[in-house]
Design a protein around this nucleic acid. Structure first.
Lengths: 190, 190
DNA sequence: AGACAAATGGACTAAATCTGTCTAATTGTC
DNA sequence: GACAATTAGACAGATTTAGTCCATTTGTCT
């Protein structure tokens, strides 16, 4: 949807409150009347935009998890994709907090569903890798779902602390090295 | 003035229209009531902020023109300072056009005075350099004021075309090399 | 040309927001 | 406690916005 592609950057730039339907229509290159033919309210635009971004990002995440590389590389790619699609854009906004709250008020279901689906996909990847002997879960003695939960929690924690700073990528890579070292079936050094 | 230091980034971020007195007060860490103790209106805040930025930048420009280096280096430093203080910040705004127009509506006098003063300073530097034989104006057969005018015009033209792109600095340096080559008393190649 | 659907400009009301002003209460300082 | 500075909060009036509606225009198809 072209309108949503135009609307999301406007929300990111001005925040929800300061963004008007006229702003969105202008950005989309249509009239305000036309905008109301597609969406019934500003909340509606935002909800649809959030849903679109979540759907789009998850499609990319699924692609990343299908690549013919190690499970670590696939998970790292999935995490990076998730961050770039749903975390960094919000962090780049001057009104990140407002947008987060509005998103939770208007599109909590989509957001929580997406988060859960991301968890499931990571869990599945870990479980399959464990079955193939690619990784060794015995060393950390836990279920794939718990590991996936840790990864997601660390991601949001890193985001919380670093905001839109460049260090975000570094911390994420460090997290991935940790995972790699902990789950590799053979000792790293010896 | 702390309030103005806080207010200007807000104007740059949201534009004049979308910026409210509540936004400015919040950014300055004071109450809206207090803000009205110092300024009588939003226009007043903007005007004072513009004046402050212009004054501050011109002070820096004067310092740059006093350095003990070649007239070319002094002028280049002055131009860079001018750009960094008054051009780039506006260009970084999403509402650059609105801010420019508002500035011309509310603070045209300050802006034009500053521009004229900048012209005079550059002219003076060129004239003094010519008197000392550091540069040769005969090759271009014109007055220092005209040369200064060209420099300022080229600056605004470059800004117009490149916006906030990184190429702005490159074009400016090229302009300075041109100036250097044209005014050097001895031929560059022989 | 004529028929048809989609998009538009513009008008409109009600609700929300913002401005600028004011006062009583609060805060911090001497 | 006295004092000045700052504040929260209320307020009226002006401006902006949301959401709706319709007559007109635009573009497409036959």
């Amino acid at each position: 949807m072209l309108i949503l592609d135009a609307a999301l950057p406007v929300f990111v730039r001005y925040g929800f409150r300061k963004t008007t339907m006229a702003d969105i229509a202008r950005a989309a290159g249509i009239s305000r009347a036309s905008l109301y033919l597609s969406f019934s309210s500003k909340e509606d635009v935002f909800r649809a935009g959030s849903a679109r971004a979540h759907r789009q990002t998850m499609t990319e995440v699924e692609v990343a998890l299908k690549a013919q590389v190690s499970v670590f590389d696939r998970i790292e790619a999935a995490v990076t994709t998730f961050q770039r699609g749903l975390i960094v854009p919000l962090g780049a906004s001057a009104d990140a907090r407002e947008l987060f709250e509005i998103n939770m008020a208007l599109a909590a279901d989509i957001t929580l569903e997406t988060r859960q689906r991301f968890l499931d996909l990571i869990s599945l990847a870990l479980r399959e890798a464990a079955d193939k002997g690619e990784i060794n879960l015995g060393a950390v003695d836990t279920e794939p779902a718990n590991l996936a939960g840790i990864i997601l929690a660390a991601m949001s924690g890193i985001k919380e602390m670093r905001g839109a700073e460049p260090g975000l990528g570094d911390d994420t890579r460090l997290l991935m090295r940790l995972l790699r070292a902990a789950l590799s079936p053979r000792p790293i050094s010896g």
